[in-house]
């Protein structure tokens, strides 16, 4: 999913969030809408929520990666671990500091990015794409990311920061 989103993000579309709709691959006569919502936290995590599969992908923002500098160690939860909204589920360490990653959502970890865990330095190259950290199965839909910032709001937030 992340690799699908990347080209869209690069264009920095002014749209408040990225909404891509397509008919579900279903023989059902009523087409279901699938939405991918991207949101940001004040703690500099990003989350994309696929409303059809209820899977949220979580990572740290480009702004955060730039501020941290060379990432040398990434600690992620195990698959099947539960994560809780606003609670740390792992950490990203650079030479100068350790930063907890706070989960923007609650749910069960269904996948973690083992490639990035094994090669933490790659996180700086593409933190909002190939550098995703975990995928979490959530319960619910759009309302789960309701309190989070959309892209333009996050960009403004970083400028003030």
């Amino acid at each position: 999913m992340a690799s699908v989103l990347r080209p869209l993000l690069r264009t920095r579309a002014p749209a408040a969030f990225i909404r891509s709709s397509f008919a579900a691959r279903s023989i059902s006569t009523t087409p279901r809408l699938s939405e991918i919502l991207k949101r940001y936290t004040k703690e500099h995590e990003w989350v994309t929520l696929d409303t059809s599969s209820s899977v949220a992908t979580i990572g740290i923002t480009q702004h955060a990666a730039d501020a941290l500098g060379d990432v040398v160690y990434i600690e992620l939860p195990a698959v099947e671990d539960q994560v809780t909204e606003s609670e740390p589920f792992g950490a990203v360490e650079s030479v100068k500091s350790a930063s907890d990653i706070l989960s923007p959502v609650s749910g069960e970890v269904v996948e973690k990015n083992e490639a990035i865990e094994g090669k933490p330095g790659d996180l700086n190259k593409d933190p909002e794409g190939e550098g995703w950290l975990v995928k979490v199965k959530v319960e619910g839909g759009e309302e789960i990311v309701e309190g989070l910032m959309e892209q333009t709001a996050y960009e403004d937030f970083c400028k003030q920061d």
Binding site: E43, H44, E45, I60, A64, A67, L68, V92, S94, K96, S97, A98, S99, D100, I101, L102, D161
Partner: peptide, 9 residues
């Protein structure tokens, strides 16, 4: 992620 921590050292 709390960026303020980057200054701790």
């Amino acid at each position: 992620m709390l960026l303020a921590q980057t200054l701790r050292s």
